[in-house]
Deep mutational scan, measured.
Amino acid sequence: KRLCLVCGDIASGYHYGVASCEACKAFFKRTIQGNIEYSCPATNECEITKRRRKSCQACRFMKCLKVGMLKEGVRLD
């Protein structure tokens, strides 16, 4: 089984260019469509796991980008 490159949960397929789970796919889409900017309360190096993926949105979004999710893949309509 493929794992989500962002949080390590089971991937539902390839989304925005990267093997990812439904939760991270939806999080990435919401962030881009809403043009949301997050800031990390710590040092921008929070560990993102299935259990902790909700704890820091800034680091989760940075990890989405780091593993290769493409903003261009999100439709803005």
Rank of each mutant, 00 (worst) to 15 (best):
F27V: 03
N35P: 12
C59H: 03
C59E: 02
K50I: 14
K63R: 09
C24M: 01
C64T: 02
K66E: 10
K1D: 10
S20T: 15
K71W: 07
S55F: 14
C4Q: 01
R30W: 09
R75G: 13
A58Q: 09
C4V: 00
A23T: 05
C59D: 04
G34A: 14
K54Y: 14
E37K: 03
N35W: 06
Y38I: 05
R75E: 13
V74R: 08
R75Q: 14
Y16H: 05
N35G: 15
A23R: 14
L65F: 04
N35A: 13
A11W: 12
R53C: 10
F27W: 03
R51W: 12
K66F: 03
V18F: 04
L5S: 07
S55D: 15
F28Y: 01
E47G: 08
C24T: 00
K66Y: 04
L70I: 13
F28K: 02
E47L: 10
C46V: 03
A42H: 04
S20R: 05
N44L: 06
K29M: 10
M69N: 02
E47N: 10
L70R: 12
K25G: 15
C59Q: 00
V67Q: 04
S55T: 15
M62T: 14
Y38V: 03
C59K: 04
K50Y: 09
I10F: 13
Q33G: 08
V67K: 09
Q33M: 06
M69E: 03
L76Y: 12
E22F: 04
R75N: 10
S20P: 06
A42W: 11
K29S: 13
C24I: 02
F27N: 00
E72H: 05
T43Y: 07
I36Q: 08
C46R: 02
E37S: 04
L5G: 06
C7M: 01
E45Q: 13
I32S: 08
S55I: 15
A23L: 05
I32N: 03
E22P: 08
C40S: 03
A11N: 08
D9F: 04
G13I: 13
R75H: 08
D77A: 09
I10D: 15
G68H: 02
K54A: 12
G13V: 05
Y38H: 08
I32D: 02
M69D: 02
I36R: 07
A23M: 14
I48P: 07
I32W: 00
F27H: 01
C21P: 02
K1F: 02
S39K: 15
D9S: 05
C7F: 05
K1E: 09
S39R: 15
C56Q: 04
R2N: 13
Q33S: 07
A11T: 06
I32T: 07
R51A: 12
